[in-house]
């Protein structure tokens, strides 16, 4: 089941758990737009310890460069897109 749909605004959790995490620090606490759902994948945070766990949905999320970097001086349409596991994303109310 997909938790987010294309076009939806999402916030990346601003958390710093120990261990292997695939959500880069520069995206944590940032707001972006869901572009698409890629399907469910092994959760790297669990599998990296040699353990098994439920698969997690992964979404392609677009972050405007001007929303990531206060001093970004390029065009406002420039963006970074990253693939984020669903448990790192929150809906913006």
């Amino acid at each position: 089941m997909t938790r987010f749909s294309a076009g939806e605004r999402v916030l990346v959790r601003d958390d710093y758990p120990p261990g292997h995490v695939r959500t880069p620090v520069y995206l944590r606490g940032k707001t972006g737009e869901v572009l698409r759902f890629f399907g469910e994948f092994d959760n790297a945070e669990v599998v990296s310890s040699g353990l098994k766990g439920p698969r997690k949905g992964v979404y392609k999320v677009r972050f405007r460069a001007v929303d990531l970097w206060d001093d970004y001086n390029g065009p406002a349409r420039d963006a970074v897109e990253a693939d984020i596991y669903e448990h790192w994303l929150e809906k913006i109310a």
């Binding site: 292997h20 599998v47 990296s48």
Partner: peptide, 11 residues
């Protein structure tokens, strides 16, 4: 070893 374990080990 799997790819995720490899990355975690590098980190």
């Amino acid at each position: 070893v799997n790819t995720h374990e490899n990355r975690a080990a590098v980190e």
